[in-house]
């Protein structure tokens, strides 16, 4: 904010770029409002998304804090983690389910959160499109790869 007193009349002496017949272009806010969306375009997606964030958040508090506790604190701490430790855990369907649930919920929760952030901050339609594309690709890749590893993990791999 400039503290100096400036005159709003005539920024440059002599040369005038704009006048009554040729006003400066107005600066429109991003994504100016259009008419309301057609009825067919309305779904409950945002409602379910909003609910999912709350419910998955509650579950993730238990899953992630439990995960961190087991991995980093209990039973010798982080130094115990190795190939054998992971192989031992994934021999049990309980830990397989735990990790699978954590993977899916965390990835979808995070992806939906980032989608919201992109919707809130990216102004140009092309930016929005590409950022979301990148986000969805990364999410699908991570979720599929993680699921594949959990189900096809081979403790005897060489």
């Amino acid at each position: 904010m400039s503290a100096e007193t400036t005159s709003a009349v005539g920024p440059v002496e002599g040369e005038r770029l704009y006048d009554v017949d040729n006003p400066a272009p107005l600066i429109e806010p991003p994504r100016k409002r259009t008419k309301k969306s057609p009825k067919t375009a309305r779904t409950n997606f945002e409602l379910y998304g909003w609910l999912f964030m709350r419910l998955s958040g509650i579950v993730l508090v238990v899953l992630v804090l439990g995960h961190l506790l087991i991995q980093l604190v209990l039973d010798g701490g982080v130094s115990k983690i190795g190939f054998a430790f992971v192989a031992g855990r994934w021999a049990s369907p309980f830990w397989q389910t735990w990790d699978l649930l954590m993977l899916w919920l965390a990835m979808l929760h995070g992806a939906n959160g980032l989608r919201t952030v992109i919707n809130d901050y990216a102004e140009r339609p092309t930016t929005r499109f590409w950022l979301k594309n990148l986000l969805y690709t990364a999410t699908v890749f991570t979720v599929l790869l993680g699921t594949l590893v959990i189900f096809t993990f081979d403790p005897n791999i060489r």
Binding site: M1, S2, A3, T5, T6, S7, A8, V9, G10, P11, R16, L17, Y18, D19, V20, P23, A24, P25, L26
Partner: peptide, 14 residues
């Protein structure tokens, strides 16, 4: 202050 007939820039005036 902003006047599109004079400038495309808004300015603070005291």
């Amino acid at each position: 202050r902003y006047n599109p007939e004079i400038s495309s820039e808004a300015e603070w005036q005291d």
